[in-house]
């Protein structure tokens, strides 16, 4: 009997399969290297981290999530590095991804400085506070909370809807005072889209909370920035995604210094993670129009939930 596989499923299935194939052998290796005099050579881990980050970069773009939110739970669960170094690298991974994607989005008016700067300002203050709290807490407690946060994020990703062009009948007073509105050219429909926002005070409050969580766990916070911009404040989806990167880069730049002064940023771990993720993201962006993103998003949510569950177990010392 001949089984035919739709072509659109081949690439996402291959990418997700590669991710799983990297994860499964990592488990016994983890056990071996858990001892200080572990038997696995250092370069195996560094190479595995680069390859893993590369695949993660592809999958993250295809699934429409930031790299940081996948990087921290998975690497902390399946690699032998202490959570401190994974969180430090995670912030840099998210920062590097946002920086490399930024220029064209700013030029097209999709990433909007007037929208992003006030949100990033409150978010950067709370992300520093989050990093300070996260580094002061016992690692096991952070791991436990990380598990809860990651499982919640998987839940948000399943539940949260999205709106391409939300309708905002009346902008609020604060957004008018801050002159937050914009216009961009929608290439898909070949038309201009003008936008304005509402519920700015609530948005600022939520960006404060999101910044704290991002700094505490070393996560990029695109998973939360985008729904707040889009569903709460009425920002068009493309502007929300692009401006989320801008906010993320500022928040990450603030929190990462706390990790650097704590000695939680080691180039041996951070640089291959950043390089792999940036290269993978570029490949992912090229594959994006050719794949069935729904399939890969489902697989990523599943992997995210599993890593969250594993973080929970590690947090309980299991």
């Amino acid at each position: 009997m001949k089984i035919s596989v739709p072509r659109r499923l081949v690439i996402p299935a291959a990418a997700a399969g590669a991710l799983l194939m990297l994860l499964i052998p990592a488990m016994p290796l983890l056990a071996a290297s858990a001892q200080p005099d572990g038997v696995t050579a250092w370069w195996v881990w560094v190479l595995a981290l680069f390859v893993f980050s590369f695949v993660l970069g592809i999958v993250a773009v295809l699934a429409g999530v930031g790299g940081g939110v996948l990087f921290v739970p998975i690497v902390s669960s399946f690699f032998p590095f202490h959570l401190d170094f994974v969180r430090g690298a995670g912030l840099l991974v998210a920062l590097a991804g946002a920086l490399s994607a930024g220029p064209p989005l700013l030029r097209k008016g999709l990433a909007d400085l007037k929208l992003g700067l006030p949100m990033a300002f409150v978010g950067s203050i709370s992300s520093i506070a989050g990093a300070l709290v996260g580094l002061a807490m016992p690692a096991q407690n952070v791991q436990l909370l990380l598990g809860i946060v990651i499982i919640s994020i998987a839940g948000i990703m399943i539940k949260a809807g999205k709106s391409g062009y939300p309708e905002v009948a009346q902008p609020d007073r604060l957004s008018q005072m801050l002159q937050i509105s914009g216009l961009y050219y929608e290439e898909f429909g070949k038309h201009e889209v003008s936008w304005q926002i509402h519920r700015t005070p609530v948005g600022l409050l939520l960006f404060f909370v999101i910044g704290f969580i991002g700094g505490m766990f070393g996560l990029g916070a695109g998973f939360a920035n985008v729904p707040v911009f889009n569903l709460l404040m009425g920002v068009p989806l493309k502007v929300a995604v692009a401006t989320s990167g801008l906010v993320l880069s500022i928040n990450g730049s603030a929190a990462v210094w706390v990790y650097m002064f704590k000695g939680a940023v080691i180039p041996l771990i951070a640089v291959p993670s950043i390089g792999g993720m940036m290269l993978g993201s570029k490949i992912g962006a090229k594959l994006l129009p050719k794949v069935d993103t729904r399939t890969i998003r489902t697989i990523v949510i599943t992997i995210l939930a599993l890593s969250g569950f594993r973080s929970l177990l590690k947090g309980f010392g299991i």
Binding site: L117, F121, L132, L135, A254, K262
Partner: peptide, 22 residues
């Protein structure tokens, strides 16, 4: 003013004045 305040926040972070301990 907002951009200047943001720059100050990043400079404070980069100064190492704020530190965490475990």
């Amino acid at each position: 003013a907002i951009t200047l305040l943001q720059v100050i926040v990043l400079l404070v972070a980069a100064s190492g004045i704020l530190s965490a301990g475990r």
